[in-house]
Design a binder for these strands. Structure first.
Lengths: 198, 198, 198, 198
DNA sequence: CATGAATGAGCGTTCATTCAT
DNA sequence: AATGAATGAACGCTCATTCAT
């Protein structure tokens, strides 16, 4: 009787352990031994499923990216006025940011790498380009429908995206003072106040 | 005749070299050898002036903090309407962000560490608290003077601070698409549009 | 009905694969995985038939030894003058050397081990002792029959054996410049020229 | 006061230790720790002077090669009849072979690598080409002067070179039965007997 | 018999730190 | 004060061997 293919299961098992370890210790301070221990596998087993430590890091980043992209593309399914859709999306990623707060240090470490390595930076560039583009399309719809004033949709999109990223930092640094969801919603409302046709 | 104290000069010499090296390679990939070479001193000499690599990192972060704090406190000296002051300050830190773009990866690496270590996080917390507080005072002045609507000054402050931080990321990742100064000014203008009394 | 004993077949299957892999990669660089793959068996199966990697190496060396010994003993069956027998034998092992050229690196690796480990060296010692002895008997026959001058048969035997071994090296290193069969035959002829009674 | 440059001294110190360790344990079984210990340095120090284990191996082989080449080129300085020169050279490398017997396993391991890797084989090829060429020139001189019969000088050279190499093996495997110097001299004498004009 | 997933001891290499000069 | 040679602990990765199925 062939054993069920455990490969996917193991890869996830390792990834999950790795995410925790990388979040707790950082890319470099994380030891393969830590990941092995946390995953309940031996060190050798890690190498059956991933070629190297870097490959685990890459897989983890891919995972986070895919998740973020999914959230992004989900935006198109929201209904109601553009304002409402923007608030809905903000609420959604606020919840996600809070759920993932533990893992945000990974993002910053990744940003640091991106700041230094062009190849890595290009990945981020594409992601943020889509981020801004998705928002810009939405904003433009608001302008076209007369819901918003005649503003530059891309500028607004960049503003919203920056806001989201910055809030992740402030809310992790001082969770009591800065609550992502709350502040995010309020910030978007303030912005919408300025956008709406009078 | 006592020689002039060379100690401060050496410490700065090392710090300057370290900043470049850390920016280029990251905390971990930066080698003491690199710093020694770049500073024109011997590896042994580094240890005469700093207890360890971590001590150099700490000194460097202290340096950046002090600089940022100075910029922050400078805000009080701006003149004109609150809107004008806010735009002036944004312009100022935009210029600073662009000048320092090369060093921003250091900030993200530092944020990553802060996300993991409470002691480090507290430093950042105080910094951002002052950041928000300074802005909040300014906003409140705008409200009190009737320049702005009755909004929550702290919320607006958090919004502006988040915006600033997020822009640093987007502008480094895609400098062609996102220009800090330009986008920063526009974003603040959008926000002010929503704040102003009708 | 008992199945035919598959054990010997498997062992040979493994040995054949191992010979190729060891020749291509060397004792240490050869992986049990390589041997498993090449043999068409699973890695676990190797251990059903051989206790360890070293056991496979040992079996392989035993195989080569047996082959060489067989060639050696075959010498007695040659006919004609001693000179003719010597040339026949040289032709024979020349052909063998050329056929086995691919595997000669294994021999050198084995010689290296023998140089370091007494137990292994003793195996080789016996082999070369028989080699020299077989040749010496032949040479002595030539002396006794008056075909050769009064020389030391053992010295000549050692000379011939050394020649054979050295040619293996030179011909593998530079096959275009040194052809085992050709050079071997010529070398033996030269030697015979000096041996023949005037 | 500047310390004397210890670099060359250390490199030799390491090389000497490495030669012993490689001879005793082989390329792969030799541990960097062993070399460190034997050299009286720390493991880290090895890497100050050699880039890697492979670099040490390469340096060692270069050392042996250079030595062998030097012996080879020394041949031109011998005087007397060609027979005498050939015997002198044989005596010389016989002494060398006996002095170096402990290190010969290194040569076989190297031959094994050469058998598998073209780049390595080319090094050996050049060495043996020069070896044969040097001998061939000498032999030809003997022919031209009427000391030797009309034989193919290159064939004789290959014969002598093979003899030398083969003797190294037989004498290490069974030092009591095969004494390099003695057998080498006798073997060359036998050959000369066949070469001399009658 | 046979499999191949899992193990873990072991090694080459790096680099922050020390210290004799 | 300054040097840079030396140290050695630590880590990523490999692979012969085992064993549950």
């Amino acid at each position: 009787m062939p054993r069920p293919n455990v490969s996917e299961e193991r890869k996830n098992q390792i990834l999950e352990a790795a995410m925790t370890v990388f979040a707790e210790r950082g890319f470099h301070e994380a030891r393969m031994d830590d990941i092995a221990q946390k995953s309940g596998l031996s060190k050798g087993a890690l190498y059956l499923y991933y070629k190297s430590k870097d490959a685990i890091i890459a897989a983890m980043l891919r995972y986070f990216f895919t998740l973020a992209m999914k959230n992004l593309r989900h935006m198109h399914t929201f209904e109601g006025s553009v304002s409402q859709q923007l608030l809905d999306y903000t609420r959604r990623i606020g919840a996600e940011a809070e759920r993932m707060a533990f893992f945000t240090p990974i993002a910053w470490e990744f940003y640091a790498v991106a700041g230094r390595q062009k190849s890595v930076r290009l990945l981020l560039k594409d992601y943020f380009a889509e981020y801004r583009q998705t928002l810009a399309v939405l904003i433009q719809k608001g302008i076209d429908s007369g819901e918003f004033r005649q503003v530059n949709a891309e500028t607004v999109a960049t503003t919203v995206a920056s806001l989201h990223e910055g809030l992740a930092l402030l809310s992790v640094v001082d969770p009591k003072a800065v609550n992502w969801s709350e502040q995010g919603m309020e910030a978007v409302r303030l912005l919408l106040d300025g956008l709406r046709t009078r």
